[in-house]
Amino acid sequence: MRRGALALLLALLLPLPVLGQEEDSAEVAAVAARQLRDAAAMMAQAEGAENRLAVLTDTVRAYEDGLALMRDTLRRVAVEKARLQSELDADREGIAKLLGVLQSIGQAPEPVLMLNPSGPLDTIRAGMLLSDVTPALQAKAEGLRAKVRRLAEIEATQGQAADTLRQGLADVQKARADLAAAAADRTELPRAYTEDPVATALLMASAESLESFAEGLGQTVDQEIATPPDEATARKGTLPLPVEGTILRRPDEPDAGGVARPGIVVATEPRALVAVPVTSTLRFRGPLLDYGTVAILEPAPGTLFVLAGLAEVYGDAGEILPEGAPLGLMGGETPDADAILTGTPQAGDAARTESLYLEVRDAGEPVDPGTWFRLD
């Protein structure tokens, strides 16, 4: 054998790149599927349950968690599949060269293969090198088989995840509709006061700012009924945010238009569930100025939590909402399964396309929301 052909053969038999050591996507997909199955079981249990609203609230949260994990799984799978396919494509040229060398060896007469023009010593050396070819070929073939097998597993995971995703998206839509209906039907909530709807309408029409509207909220009370409990003051600085998301802007950070506000902006996923962070009186719900749909909570005397940017708000002014109760849903449209599967699945902040504005006012003045909420 010529030295050039032997050198080329040995070069082609260098070890293949080691397969990625990322967390097994199939296991993550199985966890997401299990979460969605648990959510479906919870939704079935909600039918006829005495605490139907609470069960449906937990169901929507479970669906949101499961779907978020499933979308992240599909992203991981897509990235892993693209990487593996790229490696296999890169190997094709080397495989073609390897087959060419092996074919040329097979066509040479056996006596010629056993001779070396440099003498017996080089013939022995060549034989020793050739003895290494067989295990190297076997390792190369095993590596390729492993890659092909892994690619088939990834494609199977994609198919199973896609079916689970479609069912989960359909189920969460029903769960949200059931939640809205249950929230509208609840009658057991205690009331702090009854609302004067005429005074509220006049205030909405005359208010020129959020500050002036908040100052005039006292005019909307028709009759005081009860003093709501103050569970918030003792927990200042530890309250959870009312929605799952990422802080997009902090107090007084200007937006793209240069407008700075004293509250925070939280990026959320479309149709995300917004919950009551601590037992509070619902002081207002409805469209307000340029804030969109607004909900104003009073967790403690003289303190207001202003939440703006919701698409739906549950409850009536004057009701005392317990901690964890559903307050409403964010806007936007959840992408359907085909859009998620045919596009590049978004991860983390990229999937959070909606914005919730949260402002805290104490004694009529805006304060840093961090004095009440955990912002870490």
Score class of each variant (00 low, 15 high):
Leu53Pro: 03
Ser212Gln: 08
Ala40Asp: 12
Leu179Ala: 10
Val367Tyr: 00
Leu327Tyr: 00
Lys97Glu: 15
Glu319Ser: 13
Thr353Asn: 03
Ile264Asn: 00
Asp89Met: 05
Pro242Met: 05
Ala78Trp: 08
Gln219Ile: 04
Val294Gln: 10
Leu288Glu: 08
Asp222His: 14
Ser280Asn: 13
Leu98Cys: 09
Leu129Cys: 05
Met42Cys: 07
Leu273Gln: 07
Leu321Thr: 10
Ile95His: 02
Thr353Val: 10
Lys140Tyr: 10
Ile247Trp: 09
Pro109Tyr: 00
Ala30Lys: 12
Ala90His: 07
Leu210His: 04
Leu310Trp: 05
Leu36Tyr: 10
Gly343Leu: 03
Ala295Gly: 04
Glu215Ser: 09
Gly216Ile: 08
Gly127Val: 06
Gly286Leu: 11
Gly331Met: 03
Ala181Ser: 11
Gly143Pro: 09
Glu22Trp: 07
Glu211Val: 07
Val112Cys: 02
Leu36Lys: 09
Ser212Lys: 09
Gly143Leu: 06
Met330Glu: 07
Gly127Asp: 09
Arg83Cys: 02
Ala170Gly: 05
Ala182Thr: 03
Asp72Lys: 06
Val79Pro: 01
Asp222Ser: 15
Pro301Thr: 11
Gln103Arg: 14
Thr238Trp: 00
Asp368Val: 04
Thr334Ala: 08
Thr371Phe: 01
Leu248Pro: 00
Leu84Val: 05
Met42Gln: 15
Glu354Phe: 00
Pro242Ser: 05
Asp376Asn: 04
Pro262His: 05
Gln107Leu: 12
Ser104Ala: 15
Pro190Asp: 08
Ala41Phe: 04
Leu151Arg: 08
Asp185Lys: 14
Gly364Glu: 02
Phe284Lys: 06
Ala260Ile: 04
Asp196Arg: 13
Val313Trp: 03
Ala272Met: 06
Ala136Tyr: 03
Ala180Asn: 04
Leu307Thr: 03
Ala161Trp: 03
Val265Trp: 12
Ser212Asn: 05
Asp290Trp: 09
Pro262Tyr: 05
Leu329Trp: 07
Val313Gln: 05
Ile105Met: 14
Leu53Gln: 06
Gln138Ile: 12
Pro197Glu: 04
Leu6Glu: 13
Ala192Gly: 14
Asp196His: 10
Asp376Phe: 02
Val77Thr: 07
Val79Glu: 13
Ala26Leu: 10
Val265Gln: 02
Thr279Glu: 15
Arg37Thr: 13
Leu19Ser: 03
Leu129Glu: 13
Pro111Cys: 09
Thr194Ser: 14
Leu8Glu: 14
Ile154Arg: 01
Ser86Arg: 08
Ile247Glu: 08
Lys97Thr: 08
Met43Tyr: 06
Gly237Arg: 06
Ala339Gln: 13
Ala199Tyr: 01
Leu115Phe: 13
Gln158Leu: 14
Thr353Gln: 10
Glu244Ala: 15
Glu195Asp: 12
Gly309Pro: 07
Leu358Asn: 00
